[in-house]
Design a protein around this nucleic acid. Structure first.
Length: 596
RNA sequence: GCCCCCUUAGCUCAGUAGGAUAGAGCACAGGUUUCCUAAACCUGGGGCCGCAAGUUCGAAUCUUGCAGGGGGCACCA
């Protein structure tokens, strides 16, 4: 772990310091930059920079200079650094190191609430002109204390401010069991919703049920054919029918359930079978998700969209807005008006709607519900569908960013290093249920969140089952369990541990402990970035890194010793680690066990 | 043919809207347990960041071209 950084609050403090640098000249920090690295737009600070830094130069006023603050590569370079002097170098036509000196002098002569010398251990200039800031132990430990006192309020910045977000995910056709890909979408959707929730958004999780389309009909026909065949009738199986073993089970279940006993014509029977089948599949999907620990707030039925006339209303709406036209006997949506490759048919020549049409109505309904942001999680094979959906959003008068589509790549399952063959056509695929039963829901979720969602994922069942360091889930959970057992022992030995009684001036912490403290203080910034980027996998990585610092530390140092002061300080550190681990795991939807 | 994504250590992948000497896990080799949990720890070798140009103080990161892999291009869903 080379990158040691500090938390947002430290950054804020530093920013404050830099801001004060130029306070004499109406400088204002405008926007915190959206992503990751906190960049401050210093456009408003231009004048002050000119006064402070350019006085001697007398050149033109620099435009839109940004202060970047980043975490140095080398620990020895300090806790935070800024390349601002290099960025300014060209504009100011001065050597970066000279600019850096001016900035450092300015910062050091500032009157802050905290004296500069109490805040920074040292400020130095390195390399081509980086300014490196190293914080004092006292300051860092004060931050640690904040963490211990405020918990979630310290860790999770409120960036959502109550904004309403809807995340639609899984939305598997009720025509078969959930497979691994669905599982990955489920894990991502749930984690993202936890993440955004913690970040102060108001999140609704929705599952869209495709219960009206051709796929459901096909399911019904498949089961119907199986049913007929089971009665010795030579009935043709539909060409694109579903072929899994579960089709046979469905026909059997239908027979057992006995509603076919009254003699009916085939049409009625087919209808009943279709109805029975998809409802049964949907119930199984719900059960699977529940056992996976993924719960939805709302379930939107496609049939309901038709029944409530939402589909027709959506078409009328788009027509009124001038994006509907007739051609070749079909009705089209003019998606090319918003950058799509071609216009899209919404009512076919034969009068049927296309797959796209209810989806338009669905997304229109989402918009009407008044969300500030819509998020769809789709399989990557649907990526060609994104432009037309965003065209719909725009046609309805919203910017295309109003709908954010996250694509989830396929999951390859390995068993002992070899890919497990899957054939959709033959109905051979690995279900989420199988994997969940074999390796557990927690492990499955964690592994699904160890990669960026848009990159392929390989899951080796043998590795996932291993209870060893091969398995990252246990590694993280074990850190939590270990800390718990330390506290167990502390209780047994009746060590009177109270956070507020601890002297947090940092004298009691060694270098390794300070490294961990800094890592902990980095969590809020990581969290913020993960939320803004909609990337829960960053949490997974962070947790592995933190656990990777704790385990070696644990091995090397006894937390509980004869030295009661040190013991208490170490217990405080352990508690902070535990708080952070728990927070992260909760977002991933993974348990933080007390014992393992 | 057109469009999108990917290419970083033997393998699987990170790389924080361009920064300092590119990281982790696994695998491989060797070692650690009278101990708050060995589901752990320590030591070691590992790299043309696909290739080539460009942009600039500075590129794994941005641009363009090329090669390889995946996906998409329906009045299918």
């Amino acid at each position: 772990m080379k990158h040691i950084s500090s938390s947002l609050c430290i950054k804020t403090t530093l920013i404050k310091a830099l801001k004060r640098t130029c306070s004499s000249c109406h400088y204002r920090i405008t926007d915190l930059h959206k992503i990751a690295k906190i960049k401050l737009n210093l456009t408003a600070m231009e004048k002050a920079l000119r006064e402070i830094l350019l006085k001697a130069v007398g050149s033109q006023q620099p435009e839109a200079v940004q202060i970047e603050i980043e975490t140095p590569k080398e620990e020895s370079f300090g806790d935070l650094s800024t390349p601002i002097a290099m960025s300014l170098s060209k504009i100011l036509k001065k050597p970066p190191r000279k600019i850096a000196e001016d900035i450092v002098n300015a910062v050091q002569s500032l009157e802050l609430e905290v004296k500069s010398s109490e805040l920074f251990e040292k400020i130095d200039i390195a390399g081509p002109g980086f300014i490196n800031f190293t914080f004092t132990k006292v300051f860092l430990c004060k931050e640690l204390k904040e963490l211990l006192e405020k918990h979630d309020d310290f860790l999770a910045e409120n960036i959502g401010k109550g904004k309403k977000v809807q995340i639609e995910f899984v939305s598997a056709n009720p025509t078969g069991p959930l497979h691994l890909g669905h599982g990955r979408g489920a894990a991502l959707g749930a984690a993202l919703s936890n993440l955004l929730n913690e970040a102060g958004y108001n999140v609704e999780k929705e599952f869209y049920i495709n219960d009206a389309g051709r796929q459901v009909k096909l399911l019904g026909m498949s089961v119907f054919a199986k049913y007929k065949q089971s009665q010795g009738i030579d009935y043709p199986f539909p060409d694109d029918g579903y072929r899994g073993e579960y089709i046979k089970d469905l026909s059997e279940d239908f027979r057992v359930q006995g509603s076919e006993l009254q003699v009916k014509d085939d049409d009625t029977l087919l209808k009943e079978i279709t109805d029975f089948s998809y409802k049964k599949m949907l119930a199984e999907i719900k059960k699977d998700l529940e056992d996976f620990g993924v719960l939805f707030d709302t379930w939107q039925s496609e049939i309901e969209l038709y029944k409530s006339n939402a589909v027709q209303q959506a078409i009328d709406d788009l027509k009124a807005r001038g994006y509907i036209f007739e051609e070749d006997g079909a009705t089209w949506f003019k998606s090319t008006a918003f950058g799509d490759d071609k216009d899209r048919v919404i009512i076919k020549k034969d009068g049927d709607y296309t797959y796209f049409t209810p989806d338009i109505a669905y997304h229109r309904k989402k918009i009407l519900k008044g969300f500030d942001e819509l998020i769809d999680i789709w399989g990557a094979d649907h990526h060609g569908y994104v432009p037309r959906m965003q065209a719909v959003i725009q046609a309805l008068g919203y910017p295309k960013e109003h709908l954010r589509v996250l694509l989830v790549q396929m999951v390859t399952l390995l068993r002992g290093g070899k890919p497990v063959q899957m054939s959709k056509r033959a109905g051979e695929f690995i279900t989420l249920r199988e994997v969940m039963d074999e390796i557990g829901a927690d492990t499955t979720k964690f592994l699904f969140l160890t990669r960026r969602s848009d990159s392929h994922l390989e899951v080796d069942i043998e590795v996932a089952k291993a209870q060893s360091s091969e398995n990252p889930v246990y590694y993280v959970q074990y850190a939590h369990a270990r800390i718990n057992s330390i506290f167990e022992k502390a209780r047994q030995e009746a060590i009177g541990y109270r956070q507020e009684a601890i002297d947090f001036n940092g004298d009691l912490f060694n270098d390794e402990e300070m490294r961990i403290v800094k890592k902990l203080l980095l969590y809020p910034a990581m969290f913020r970035n993960a939320a803004l980027a909609h990337e829960p996998h960053r949490i997974t990585f962070y947790l592995q890194e933190l656990a990777g610092m704790f385990h070696p530390y644990y091995h090397k140092h006894k937390v509980i010793s004869e030295d009661t002061e040190v013991t208490k300080a170490r217990l405080a550190l352990c508690e902070a680690i535990s708080i952070v681990l728990k927070h992260g795991l909760k977002i991933l939807g993974v348990k933080a066990p007390e014992k393992m």
